[in-house]
Design a binder for these strands. Structure first.
Lengths: 194, 194, 194, 194
DNA sequence: TATGAATGAGCTTTCATTCAT
DNA sequence: CATGAATGAAAGCTCATTCAT
């Protein structure tokens, strides 16, 4: 077959199948055989591209995180106003979670107890986001838009809040734009009547 | 020994050992043998008190959730002002997480992929908290303290934020009182300068 | 309590309970705990009278075999005519099987694979019966009542036939006397029309 | 190797090994590992072909019963005279027992306490044989060869007698033809001198 | 390269047996 | 004597991984 799919194609296919299965069943209940079936390849083929189940999981997860970061980096133009940045962040996060439910589910749930490596990877990504958000908060304080608050704490709270909204039990049914606006509105203005 | 441990004590001992091990390794990587060793009993003894590994996990988890709920119910006096209620909630939550790191860790991480039953249990507890918080927000709106916001969304955001602050990566090093105050301050007043 | 039951009483109680349980579930599926419950004694008490599960089984089985032999010895008066002896044997066997279904069931089914000792015990009893029957056949030949046949073979066949009739699937519903007569009639006269 | 074993071969190999081990030790004392060793395969391989130990046992047993039935059906030509039919039956039974001692041993001993399914299977086969024999007796009565006897009882007795002769303790040392003749002779003519 | 039959380490669970009371 | 809570050896079964084809 000369018009074969490009080289990384089967690897991709396996990783996507893995994301689906891992998201649905978790790392320990997912069977390599099932992932292989889902990817429509033989069980042995998985081991042609990944050294182990853990390796497949890690690679899949890293790809997911990379995609998240990439999406964020692409969409968070520096020229946006601070308020717009937050709204944009929430929108992108919610949209990512909605589009990539599989990967999002895996990132959300399965990181503490799979392997220290994996835990490391996710916590690093988490720290990076917090850092970015804290930086934006700091920027707001410096430009006089925000009042004096603990930026790290606020960043943690903000990400936690957004994360909770994006969770399956949260409000992610309708359009994401208004929800993103609301979230940012609540966070920036607080809920007390002035 | 004449001052023997009271009845049900061994069950407690096993559950506490289970909490430690499950928190550290997660459900699937925890071995019954290790839990038995940690509890300083024989492997078979675990099965005298629990029908299976899953049963032990569920019972331990339910006990943890019950403890959380109980603590909350005991400490959230209805006569507190709304602001004080939120501060109290954050304080109690953070304190619980700090005191019962094992159980908190288990509740936080291991619920999706252990069993539908367990998932059910945790999500129910989660819904209950959200409901309580949303009710408090509603109360604030009715009394004119809070502005018109989506109470469910706000409750989700608030719990998410608190949850994030309580997570191992969050800020829970120093005294909890000031942190609780700060969290509530940020949430009530927002971060924008008026 | 000075008017206590005699010494062997509890031992008997346990053995009878064992017979019931072993008969119903077989050796390997019977649990010591269940036998203890059936005998209305504590689990540990079983070990006061028997050194092990196998010991209990063996003792119970030997008691059953002894009872069978004893019944046979008591009822098979030497002064009976040969024909009467056979009828008597069949009747006693069928009655024993009917009265002591538990023990009979155990003897019938559970002897090959419990222990070589047990197998030995039962096969010895079996050989003894065959020998007795063969002797009676020989007696018949010598007195001119029976024709020249292989006594061992005939004894084996006869016991096999009686055994089959006594099995749960066989004909043991109605009165045993006529059945015993029929069995002996068939065996002595054959089934061919003369 | 180019002349590989045909498909289903390994399944056969495992079933034959199982027959040997089960016959020697009984169901409960047989370990999967030992059967695997006997079959010269890995422990896990057994589970590639059978879902459980019980499944392996059942399948093996059914194959044995099928073989018995098949042998009987093939060899019991309807055109045989009644007397020849009985002789043929005894000969086939004894030969089967001699050739397939493993399977015969399993069928003879292990059916009550393995599983209701297994019990069902064996008792059905037993009933079928009894029915066939009773039919032949009835045929004999109708054609005037046999005297008026209870066919079911006689069939039970006959099979019991043959079964006993075929048992390991019975007479199955020498040639089977003369033994079969003797058995049938005894049964048809009886043992009384006319 | 792609495959899936074969494997065995490792797990949960059972239950005969012990022994402190 | 009587007990039953405690125990751990032992067995069935799973599934990540290998490797001959």
């Amino acid at each position: 077959m000369f018009l074969n799919l490009n080289a990384g194609d089967k690897k991709q296919k396996i990783m996507m199948a893995a994301a689906r299965v891992f998201a649905q069943k978790g790392f320990h209940k997912s069977k390599i055989e099932e992932i292989a079936q889902e990817a429509d390849v033989g069980k042995g083929t998985v081991y042609e591209y990944f050294t182990s189940k853990l390796d497949l999981f890690s690679k899949m997860l890293e790809a997911g995180i990379w995609l998240y970061r990439d999406t964020l980096a692409r969409e968070m133009k520096p020229q946006l106003t601070i308020g717009a940045k937050f709204t944009r962040f929430v929108y992108i996060h919610l949209q990512f979670v909605q589009c990539h439910q599989d990967i999002a589910g895996v990132i959300r749930q399965e990181f503490l107890h799979v392997s220290p490596q994996v835990q490391q990877t996710i916590m690093e990504a988490h720290r990076e986001i917090i850092k970015m958000l804290a930086g934006t908060f700091r920027e707001g304080i410096e430009t006089g838009s925000f009042r004096q608050i603990d930026c790290e704490l606020a960043a943690g709270m903000f990400f936690g809040a957004v994360h909770a909204v994006g969770a399956p039990t949260g409000k992610t049914a309708g359009d994401l734009e208004p929800i993103a606006s609301q979230v940012v509105d609540v966070f920036l203005k607080g809920i007390e009547k002035k």
